[in-house]
Computed example of a mutant assay.
Amino acid sequence: MNRGLSSRIVTMLQTVAACLLVAALANGQAAPQEKPLMADDVFKNIQVLRGLTVDQFMGTMGFIAAALSMNCSECHHTGSAAEYADDTPRKQTARKMILMVNALNKANFGGKREVTCYSCHRSDSRPKVTPSLAEQYGTPPPDDPNELEIPEAPSGTALSPDQILDKYIQALGGSQRLASITSFAGKGTYEGFDTEGDKFPVEIYAKAPNQRTTIVHLRAGDNIRTCDGRNAWNTSAGTLLPVPVFSLSGGDLEGAKMDASLSFPGQIKQTLKDWRTGFPNASIDDKDVDVVQGSSADNTPVKLYFEKKSGLLLRLLRYTDTALGLNPTQIDYADYRDVSGVKMPFRLTVTWTDGRSTIVLSELRANVSIDAAKFSKPAGTAPAKP
């Protein structure tokens, strides 16, 4: 082929590709999946937990914190972001413990993760080695509904997944009205681990079928969580993370996609798969619930808790796999109000191993026009290592 003609063809194809990308973004379509930022390229002095993305690395830190009931400052020097990399006796001990747990699983369970930090620590910095008579003979704590599992011989009277999900859809307003909501925008207040008890303005934007953005206006800047249907990003305003924005991967990405899709609950049956029921009786805040379990796209279990009386969703429990174990994320829904003929929750409480946050909405508007840029990657520049 003539070299000049070949060059013109390549240039033309590149131009067409660029135009298609611009058109896709203008129409609010998801951009190609982004390669996640690696923790090894961001943090210094990583010796054991290598090869993880930034979000996987931070999730693993959260797992350790939950297993030992400790926070960052108890293992790290937290005077500045740079000091996090300094070695401390507890960091050195943690590395040894991680290697020990990995060796236990490899030697005894064929490498399958059967033992984790939590297996022994149980939210205590020092594992107990002596039985507690108070625990043995005292009143046992109430069952945690999050820990319910389907028994080997489930009750034959349990409702089917379709029955519970259909009741939920009807309680919200019915499938036809749900389908009529294609976008919404909300405003309210946010309070969480990063606000020291203060409340800050928050905005939520969502567009069917699977785009959602939450913007919290903190003192340190806007903390943004965005999902465009294929990619998801978090900014780090209000934290000591040395990256202004990072993409989510693995279970964190699947969780963000799930949250975006379930913003439009008429598609709940398609969002998850492998639905199951048959759990023991349970209650949340003295409200009896029906528990349904599905699986996400990465085959991680997801539990949903529907109030028996109203049929409304009270809680969603999903998990993210980390280098050391599963991290739970719990979302509680409350204060359902009518918005264009559909009941929508005005209070959302998110609890995970790194903290808890509550959003209380003061307004929700349905079927509003939302700029496609709201679901694009938030602005940020590549940082230097701390």
Rank of each mutant, 00 (worst) to 15 (best):
G4K: 06
L5Q: 15
S6K: 13
S7L: 10
T11H: 14
M12W: 06
A17I: 06
C19S: 15
L20T: 14
V22M: 09
Q29L: 15
Q29D: 14
Q29F: 08
D41H: 09
G51R: 03
T53A: 05
T53I: 08
V54K: 01
Q56E: 12
Q56M: 10
I64R: 12
I64A: 10
A67N: 02
S69H: 10
S69P: 09
M70T: 13
H77D: 15
T78V: 11
S80M: 05
D87H: 14
K91R: 14
Q92D: 07
Q92P: 08
T93F: 09
N102M: 11
A103S: 13
L104A: 07
N105I: 08
K106W: 06
F109S: 08
Y118N: 08
S123V: 02
D124L: 12
R126N: 15
D143I: 12
D144L: 14
E149W: 04
T157M: 11
L159V: 10
D166L: 15
K167G: 06
K167D: 13
G174Q: 04
L178P: 00
S183T: 11
F184L: 04
Y190V: 03
E191M: 09
F193M: 08
E203A: 09
Y205F: 15
Y205A: 02
P209T: 04
Q211M: 15
H217G: 05
A220V: 00
G221Y: 09
G221D: 12
N223T: 00
C227P: 01
G229S: 04
N231I: 14
N231Y: 03
A232N: 08
N234W: 06
N234E: 09
T235C: 03
T235L: 01
S236P: 00
A237I: 02
G238W: 01
P244W: 00
F246A: 03
E254K: 05
A256Q: 01
S261L: 04
P265T: 03
Q267H: 05
I268Y: 00
T271P: 02
L272D: 00
R276M: 09
R276D: 10
T277N: 01
F279M: 04
S283R: 12
I284T: 12
D290C: 11
G294N: 01
S296A: 11
S296I: 01
S310P: 09
L312G: 03
L314T: 05
R318P: 00
T320K: 00
D321K: 14
D321N: 15
A323I: 07
L326C: 03
T329K: 02
Q330L: 13
A334K: 14
S340I: 00
P345E: 03
F346S: 01
L348R: 05
T351D: 02
L361N: 14
S362L: 03
K377E: 11
A379G: 06
A382R: 07
P383G: 03
